[in-house]
């Protein structure tokens, strides 16, 4: 009796997985974003950066598209840290996956270049 139940549940579970494969891997994006806004400081900002990097790693593992804005946010963090080269590389990546971002990213790349 017990095995029957397990089999049934497993089947339901697997069938459910196929249709509801998550579109994106967001990890703890919203939680770390909230902590940064609420508490401020370098520590929460560093945690947010880590969560952005984790999203990229996890998305690669799960073979899903990196969510909109993640590369751009990372680029912005590097831009603020005066690391223009890295910033530009991330802005380019955002553009590559999301052509919708092209105009904005081009503006940011131009800014990063003048910043040097």
């Amino acid at each position: 009796m017990k095995t029957v139940f397990i089999v049934v549940f497993t089947t339901i579970f697997l069938a459910g997985c196929q249709t509801t494969k998550p579109m994106y891997e967001y990890e703890n994006y919203s939680e770390s974003f909230y902590s940064m806004k609420k508490e401020g400081g370098d520590e929460t900002a560093a945690e947010w950066k880590i969560s952005l990097e984790n999203i990229i790693d996890k998305s690669k593992v799960k073979a899903v598209r990196v969510p909109p804005g993640v590369y751009a946010n990372l680029g912005y963090i590097h831009l603020k840290a005066n690391n223009s080269e890295k910033a530009i590389a991330f802005f380019e990546q955002e553009k590559q996956i999301y052509p919708e971002a092209s105009k904005f990213m081009d503006n940011l790349i131009r800014k990063a270049k003048t910043q040097g």
Binding site: M23, Y24, Y26, S30, Y34, P67, P68, G69, A101, F104
Partner: peptide
């Protein structure tokens, strides 16, 4: 901090809010 995710998951390109 709560708006981006659900809109992106709904299928839109959302600009990075921060």
């Amino acid at each position: 901090t709560t708006v981006e995710m659900p809109i992106a998951l709904h299928g839109y390109y959302t600009f990075p809010y921060q």
